[in-house]
Structures are given as C-alpha cells and as structure tokens.
Deep mutational scan, measured.
Amino acid sequence: MKVTIEENEETGKFTIKVKTEDGEEKTIEIPKENLEEILAKLPPNVEII
C-alpha cells in the first residue's frame, strides 16, 4: 500500500491519496490538526510518499 500526502497551503488541509496492492485508489482531505492521528493509525507495511 502506498500513501501520498500533499499539503494544500490555501485551505490548510492535507490531501491523502491511498493506492492499495490491488490498484484501488482513494483520496481524502483532512485538517492539518488530524494528520498525526491519521498517521498513527496506518499499518506498518505502508509506504509513505
């Protein structure tokens, strides 16, 4: 699983794009305050880009 994290400076939010092993892609946008909480919940086999 690969996770790409991009900061949107205009909105102050982060866009998180997840690509699973089977090629499925999902995108979510979260507030900056929630980034550490989300990262802590990721499984250890995740590659963060």
Rank of each mutant, 00 (worst) to 15 (best):
I28V: 07
L42I: 04
K17F: 10
D22W: 09
L39I: 06
E33S: 08
I28D: 01
I5C: 07
I48D: 01
I30C: 14
E25P: 02
I30V: 13
K13M: 14
V46I: 10
T20W: 15
E37A: 11
K32H: 07
E47G: 04
I38D: 00
E24M: 11
E37N: 07
M1K: 03
K41S: 11
K17D: 04
G23D: 02
V46H: 05
M1T: 09
G12Y: 02
K17Y: 13
E10H: 11
N34E: 14
G12A: 01
G12L: 03
I28Y: 15
T20Q: 06
V18F: 15
E24Q: 12
D22V: 04
E29V: 14
I48V: 07
I5T: 01
T27V: 14
K41T: 12
V46E: 02
G23C: 06
V3D: 01
E33N: 07
I30L: 04
I38L: 13
E24Y: 12
M1G: 05
E33M: 06
E9I: 12
E10P: 03
E6P: 00
T4Y: 14
T4N: 03
K32P: 08
D22L: 07
P44V: 10
E33G: 09
M1A: 08
T15I: 15
E9G: 10
G12C: 10
T20P: 03
T11E: 13
T15P: 13
L39A: 00
E37L: 09
P31K: 09
I5V: 08
E36D: 09
P43Q: 06
E9V: 14
P44Q: 08
K32F: 10
M1Q: 05
E25R: 02
M1C: 14
K19Y: 14
G12I: 01
E9S: 12
I16R: 00
N8H: 06
T27I: 13
I48R: 04
E6R: 05
I30W: 04
P31N: 13
T15A: 04
I49N: 05
I30A: 04
N34I: 13
K2N: 06
K2T: 13
E10C: 14
E33P: 03
E37V: 07
T11W: 02
L42K: 01
N45W: 14
E47Q: 12
E29M: 08
E37T: 07
E6F: 13
V46D: 02
E9K: 14
E9T: 14
E7I: 14
L42T: 01
I38K: 01
N8L: 03
I5P: 00
E7F: 15
N34A: 14
E10R: 09
F14S: 15
E21I: 12
E7P: 05
I49F: 06
E10S: 09
E6N: 05
E9Q: 11
I38A: 07
T11A: 03
K41H: 10
V18P: 00
E10K: 11
E33H: 08
L35W: 07
I28H: 04
N45T: 07
E33F: 08
T4Q: 05
L35I: 06
I16W: 00
V18I: 15
E37P: 03
K17A: 06
I16F: 02
K26F: 15
E25H: 05
N8G: 04
V18L: 11
E36R: 12
V18C: 15
N8F: 02
L42V: 02
K2Q: 12
T20N: 08
T20H: 07
G12P: 13
L39M: 06
E47R: 09
N8W: 02
L39G: 00
M1P: 08
E37R: 08
E9D: 09
P43T: 06
E24K: 11
E25G: 02
T11C: 13
E6K: 05
N8S: 07
E47V: 12
F14T: 15
I30R: 00
F14K: 14
P31A: 13
I38G: 01
P44A: 09
E37K: 08
E24P: 05
A40Y: 01
P31F: 13
I30T: 04
E10V: 11
E7N: 05
K2I: 13
A40D: 04
T20A: 06
F14A: 15
K26C: 15
G12S: 02
